[in-house]
Design a protein around this nucleic acid. Structure first.
Lengths: 335, 335
DNA sequence: ACTTAGCACTCAACATGCCCAAGTGCTAAC
DNA sequence: GTTAGCACTTGGGCATGTTGAGTGCTAAGT
């Protein structure tokens, strides 16, 4: 039996199954794909593929469906990323237009990606490790309450209300603001923990307590903006694609809602050399996603974009869409 | 036939159906509820109820289920809001603790509400009509790009990147900042459109173009914070409660994702005198929600909290939870 | 004027049995 | 290594029968 044909058979099975949603048998296979052999030969090949755990039969006389392992092989060795259609290119291009507001862009991106793939799209807020402090603002909301605002040069704004413990004088706040601003403007966000203590130390003793509290606030803001959040769109696609599989949709929604789970999942997916990583079915660390696959890739400086859908998905097209969107996103937001 | 008993029968039907998820018949009714009459009598009553459009039979010989109109009558005239359990009260109370950060509070609220009701919880960001400008900041991100930040005394922060068209000098920006700040600090957000033009008019002619652009940005920020957004949690509950009804879950997810739809829906629901409004099934303006009900109420100064679930839901308990949560939310965030 | 017992009737849900088509694995021949 | 042929398995479709919950109606009782 020839190795290339075996792969060809696997590919045919995957493609047919993705398309028809039904187990595919040997006869149907030879009809639809012009492999130059008879169904009996295919059957032999299939037996081998099954033995290797690449495909499985739901029951004795139904066709075969790919296993997670089968999809994996398909993705890794067989499939080639499809080019996008002109319309799709245009849709992505139009992302370039419009305001430069990060939130806006991400929101439109995630919508676009979900429409392009008919899956649930997710995007992680961009990493800001290289971001630099642009501005600091303290606003007195109530006698003991201070709003701390941290603005980075990337345009990202963090805010937090902190409790000062005792009454705060507005003048003291202004003084501290200029102190902090003078010392940390231009500092990378992730260096703040090292810089802030010295700023506090240089403050007049009677303000040191307050300064400490504020420094704390600033630091947690810088942490916060790194502890990224996730944006998603297209959850309704889950319902559409899984018309017959309503069972599994619950756990998937739970996973999507638990941002921690998704963040973990995305960051666990190493960056694939080919540009897009895929995590298939039970490969996912989270049980609720045992029947789902995630296709994701990095953009900008390391944050992830991707989609989530049923294991039975059109990987080549999906991967192409994810890759293209990620590229444009990188271009817009800058590496 | 006695009017009170008719209502009693309707109530029994609603309660049983909500509980069992199955059409309820006359015999089962007399068994479970000690109405002092025979099943034949109930049958007569049921016939009347059906004629009035309050209940319906899925097919000839199944029990009856309430119609939207039946639920409406139930909610309006029959049900009485159930008291919450001690555990539930405790859970809500614990919302009082923790940081005063609005975002945080809302997020915890919406999670809590979804757990309490086993439905999808939604909460609108608070109205800020009474909010007042606390601070304005312009940050130069790039030669032609300015980040406009508007901070309200409520602690809400709005931000937006605007394109200045031509190069901007930092000094000019600082000057304008103090001008704007001096003129509009303390002004209510919704009065900004009236105040801003005069500020622009008072600027030196060479800065007027930039001032105009900035004023525009500020104004759209104040609009933005009014054009509220929605936070939600518990979408997975949709899958759980609708195990048998996977058909309708798609449109519902779509509706939830379209914030505009939800906002419209929430604001269309007038504030009920009893404190909680309910919109049932086809009463909803959006077709996708034809099999869903929304239970919502206002909090703070007019924003809404509520839940969305299948029409077949436990209204009394749900209404109690929504009302209680809204009350605590009002208390925490201040009227 | 209500209520109730009784009864005939309807109909979804379940069960049973049957057949068919799809699909397999195997063997023997090419 | 491939192929034709064949026996075998089995889920799905279909026609049929049965059951039971539930109704509506009528006639009698209060």
């Amino acid at each position: 039996m020839s190795e290339p044909r075996k792969l060809e058979v696997l590919r045919a099975i995957v493609e047919d199954y993705v398309h028809s949603r039904e187990p595919v048998g040997s006869k149907a296979l030879v009809e639809r794909h012009h492999l130059g052999v008879s169904s009996a030969t295919i059957r032999n090949d299939m037996a081998v593929l099954e033995e290797e755990g690449l495909i499985a039969a739901p029951h004795t006389s139904a066709g075969r469906i790919p296993t997670d392992k089968g999809y994996r092989l398909f993705v890794d060795r067989i499939s080639q990323v499809k080019p996008l259609s002109a319309a799709e290119r245009r849709a992505i291009h139009s992302l370039l237009e419009g305001p430069d507001d990060v939130d806006d862009i991400l929101e439109r991106t995630v919508r676009l990606l979900s429409q392009l793939t008919n899956q649930v799209a997710v995007v992680q807020y961009p990493h800001s490790s290289r971001a630099v402090v642009r501005h600091v603002e303290f606003v007195l909301l109530a006698p003991k309450q201070v709003l701390v605002v941290l603005i980075a040069d990337t345009g990202s704004v963090g805010q937090k209300v902190i409790d000062a413990g005792s009454d705060v004088a507005n003048e003291a706040l202004m003084l501290l603001r200029s102190r902090f601003l003078g010392s940390i403007a231009g500092t990378q966000l992730d260096l703040l923990p090292q810089v802030l203590p010295s700023v506090v130390a240089l403050c007049p003793p009677e303000l040191r307590g307050l300064a400490q509290t504020l420094a704390h606030g600033l630091q947690s803001l810088s942490d916060n903006s790194r502890e990224e959040r996730i944006l998603m769109a297209g959850t309704a696609n889950l319902a559409r694609s899984n018309v017959d599989f309503p069972l599994s949709i619950g756990p998937v929604l739970e996973a999507l809602e638990e941002q921690v789970v998704m963040l973990r999942l995305l960051s666990d997916m190493g960056d694939d050399p080919r540009g897009v990583s895929v995590s298939i079915g039970r490969e996912n660390p989270y049980d609720g996603l045992a029947e789902a696959s995630v296709v994701a890739t990095g953009y900008g400086s390391g944050a992830k974009v991707g989609i989530l859908g049923p294991t039975r998905m059109d990987y080549p097209t999906t991967m192409a869409a994810v890759r293209a969107v990620a590229r444009y996103l990188s271009r817009i937001l800058g590496g």
